[in-house]
Design a protein around this nucleic acid. Structure first.
Length: 287
DNA sequence: ACTCTTGTTAAAAC
DNA sequence: GGTTTTAACAAGAG
């Protein structure tokens, strides 16, 4: 499932491909992903993509010469943005190589943007939870205002972080997943960050010591920056000529490692449920 | 054919 | 109001 590092990877890789592309036509295979916007096509055809911004896991596409038109994109669990040039896949996002459909459009293609250049952008989403919706400038402002600070940001303040976690009795993992408090962490990186900081996901946030809080504050940013550096975990970048396959999966310490021995203390990694989500941790060295 | 799982969010309940 | 719980989303795996 795409989290901040995966979405950032998509943003970064799509940025140069999309900038300057003029939409010639759009295929809406599933209206739900447009927010059931009946004027979706008429509003977008002829528009030229400009920059791609991101906050948390939300992508914000802007257009040239149209300051009040944006597309808000969320991949949710199974969304993929796939870009083809001359019918060969250049970049995608959201899932492992084997899960990416090579023949496009596929049965999971929900939206298709055909560009004047001949290039094509596909929005694939098996479970239809994601979206690519039109928004005005003020709607973008509102959407942005709902996010807390990003741990990868330079201004991420460990003092403010400590104040935040001290103020909550919720389990620390649940708090860290709250996008309105901290933006960008998902199930994988929250488990990995907690492992790195040696904090149990089940521990009430207010019981986390200042020392552990500082470790955790640093760990969240580190884990996501390291993942971005190798192209994310669930993201696969590849080309038909065999490009690089960045993959943070090789570096995971606890996520999906239940039954394995902890690399730090040798205890057995456990998987449990917290707030309905699979939660991985080492009972030996996280407390 | 049925249940379970998945991450996120919005709504409802406390 | 903060917070916890629940439901819903859609499809696939078993």
């Amino acid at each position: 499932m795409p989290e901040l590092p995966e979405v950032e990877t998509v943003r970064h890789q799509l940025q140069d491909k999309l900038a300057g592309q003029v939409i010639e036509s759009i295929e809406v295979y599933s209206a739900k992903q447009t927010g059931d916007d009946e004027e979706y096509e008429s509003k977008l055809i002829g528009q030229e993509f400009a920059d791609i911004d991101r906050i948390g896991k939300l992508l914000i596409f802007s257009f040239a010469d149209n300051p009040d038109l944006f597309l808000l994109g969320h991949l949710r669990m199974t969304g993929q943005l796939l870009f083809t040039s001359s019918n060969s896949l250049i970049t995608g996002g959201g899932h492992s190589l084997s899960e990416v459909d090579l023949d496009l459009p596929s049965k999971h293609t929900r939206l298709q943007f055909n560009f004047v250049s001949g290039d094509v952008l596909y929005f694939n989403d098996m479970r239809k939870f994601g979206y690519l919706k039109i928004a005005s400038a003020s709607e973008v402002m509102v959407a942005k205002s709902k996010f807390g600070p990003e741990p990868t940001g330079a201004n991420f303040d460990c003092e403010a972080f400590y104040q935040l976690i001290q103020s909550s009795h919720r389990p620390i993992k649940t708090l860290l997943l709250d996008q309105s408090k901290i933006a960008g962490l998902g199930n994988i990186y929250v488990d990995e960050s907690l492992f790195r900081a040696k904090v149990s996901p089940l521990r009430p946030a207010c019981d986390v010591s200042r020392r552990q809080s500082d470790l955790l504050c640093k760990a969240t940013g580190e884990v996501m920056r390291e993942s971005i550096a190798v192209g994310g975990t669930t993201f696969q970048n590849f080309t038909d000529t065999g490009g690089q396959h960045g993959n943070f999966r090789d570096y995971l310490q606890v996520f999906g490692k239940q039954g394995d021995k902890c690399s730090r203390c040798g205890d057995v990694i456990k998987k449990t449920k917290l707030g309905g989500r699979g939660t991985h941790f080492c009972p030996g060295c996280q407390n």
